[in-house]
Computed example of a mutant assay.
Amino acid sequence: MHTPKAPTPPDPTQTAAAQTSTNVDTAIANAGLSHTNQITPDGSLTYSQTGTQTMTDQNGKTYYLPTYTATQSYSPANQAIYNQTQQTQLGLAKLANEQTGKISDLLGTNVDLSKENIDRYTNDHWINGFNDTWDRNQASLEQKLADQGIKMGTPAYFNAMNDFTKQKQSANDQYLGDMYSNAQSSILTQRNQPINEISALMSGSQINQPNYVNTPSTQLPTVDQAGLINDNYNQKLGIYNQQVANQNAAMGGLFGLGSSLLGGWAMGGFKSDRRLKTDISTVGKLDNGLPVYAFRYKEGGPMQIGLMSDDVREIHPEAVFEHPDGFDRVDYGQAVA
Rank of each mutant, 00 (worst) to 15 (best):
H323Q: 05
E142Y: 07
S181M: 04
N248P: 07
S44F: 14
Y293F: 13
Y157S: 08
T154L: 14
S181N: 10
S181A: 08
H2W: 10
N159M: 12
E322K: 09
M1A: 14
D325N: 15
V330R: 00
L257F: 03
I39D: 15
P41M: 11
K115Q: 10
L254Q: 02
I207N: 14
M179C: 01
A250F: 09
V320C: 07
D331S: 04
V223A: 11
S170W: 09
V223P: 13
Q242R: 10
T20K: 01
G252F: 08
D25S: 11
D325S: 12
Q84V: 02
I28Q: 06
A31I: 08
Q247V: 01
S281G: 09
F321N: 02
P302G: 13
L220H: 12
G129D: 09
L257R: 04
A17E: 07
F270K: 08
G252S: 11
Y212H: 09
S114F: 00
I150H: 09
T22P: 00
A27C: 07
K166A: 15
K168A: 13
G177K: 14
V312Y: 15
N123V: 05
A319M: 10
M179F: 08
F295K: 11
Y121L: 02
I195H: 01
K271I: 09
V292G: 00
T67Q: 05
G284A: 12
H125I: 00
Q193K: 11
I39E: 15
A70G: 11
T71E: 12
T54Q: 07
G51H: 05
P216V: 00
P194Q: 04
D105R: 03
S44L: 10
T3K: 11
D124H: 00
S44E: 14
